[in-house]
Design a protein around this nucleic acid. Structure first.
Lengths: 220, 220
DNA sequence: ATCAACTCTGAAACTTGTTCTAGATTAGCG
DNA sequence: CGCTAATCTAGAACAAGTTTCAGAGTTGAT
């Protein structure tokens, strides 16, 4: 029988991809340790030169793992960076749960939450660059992982709105907010928009979002 | 004195970048022809395999230009694809001018315009993939060109709104619409959202946009 | 017509992501 | 304990973007 984890390709997909949402792959301790070492090395390298500085050979060396092994855990550089983003998002969500936003309206709380996330990203702009670039550059082969990031983001926003049973219209509004958040982040990272501009965009979309409930009623 | 165009780096930046908005670089006929051949070859290759199929060596061969020359005209694959996008956007804008959207409200006209653009992209999804991926992956070295694309998009939306003197709030709304448009496109291209979903997102953001005028009045 | 300055070409070289291979190591089962 | 299947390692090899270089081709000025 197999040693350490198993299932050929499955190890990659499950082990590296779904973090802990679906523990389809009970990694060994050593494997879990390797995985962490890799993610840590990746984040560290990203904090320096951003996307370009995350070089697979360097990551492998920094995490004391053979190149082939690195590729077994994360089938591509994009997968690796997206996994890093999942990791960071979990940290963020945990932090936010401890100190929830204090605004009066849902719009205020969402804006506050996103601005808090934005400030976190500003602290390590190069890391942000690497993660966001990977996220938007990801092709279909990374869809499951990217989708997971998206769901996590949705969860964070819904938490801020204090909505347990969102209507379809509210979900649409959340989608628009996410779109704006992502795209605004990109314009900032590529130096085409200032921090202030991103703030305005976030506040604008959150303000507008408030007005969704009364608009349509085609469903239930 | 120099032969054919000139100015070292300037040829790249001006020749390849600013298309015709600022004719800082009066390319020779032969150079203009080369440039077109390159863009055409790029689009053709992109229509097949998308981003990955646009290989610089192939582009060079297809357009009967040496690899070094290709890089003189477009300093990177990303620059090349973004220039291709500029090209396509101009076509689109010209087409739209001939048949302006017919909706009653500004929101309807913007939604109609974006959906028309979306349908155009659906006709060549691989090309869309290549261009959009390049656009979002572009780093700071491509900012001027990406910014140009952004301005062109803004112009198209403002045209649809029939706004000649937009207020700051309206410009903010347009920014949010653009963000949503871009990001929704990406989710569609990466297979994480359906065409219908993109339609809903566009309509949602356009509907919300209508409500900007009465909301704030901190400026002017 | 000649010259200087620049551009284009063809080909090799370099970089970094990705794949492949052969052998050493590890994990769990009988 | 010893087996067996799987993993891990080291390193070569391959692919595509990018750079470099020497030489040939253009162009406009003198």
């Amino acid at each position: 029988m197999p040693a350490e984890a198993s299932r050929d390709k499955a190890t990659k997909a499950a082990g590296a991809g779904t973090t802990r949402t679906s523990p389809a792959s009970p990694l060994t301790e050593r494997q879990e340790a390797r995985r962490r070492r890799i993610l840590h090395a990746c984040a560290q390298l990203a904090c320096r030169g951003g996307f370009d500085a995350v070089q697979m050979r360097e990551v492998a060396e920094s995490s004391q793992v053979a190149l082939g092994t690195l590729y077994r855990y994360f089938p591509s550089k994009i997968h690796l960076l997206v996994a890093t983003m999942q990791d960071q998002l979990e940290h963020l969500h945990a932090t936010l749960r401890k100190k929830p936003p204090a605004g009066e309206t849902a719009a205020e709380r969402v804006a506050e939450t996103l601005m808090r996330a934005f400030r976190a990203l500003q602290r390590e702009p190069q890391l942000a660059d690497a993660m966001v670039r990977a996220l938007t550059f990801a092709d279909r082969s990374v869809s499951p992982e990217v989708d997971q990031v998206s769901r996590q983001t949705t969860k964070i926003i819904l938490d801020a709105m204090e909505l347990t049973h969102p209507t379809p219209d509210q979900l649409s509004a959340v989608r628009v907010i996410e779109h704006t958040w992502h795209s605004a982040l990109i314009t900032w990272l590529s130096g085409r928009a200032s921090i202030a501009q991103v703030k305005v965009d976030i506040e604008t979309v959150c303000r507008l979002m408030d007005l969704t409930a009364p608009t349509s009623s085609e469903h239930s």
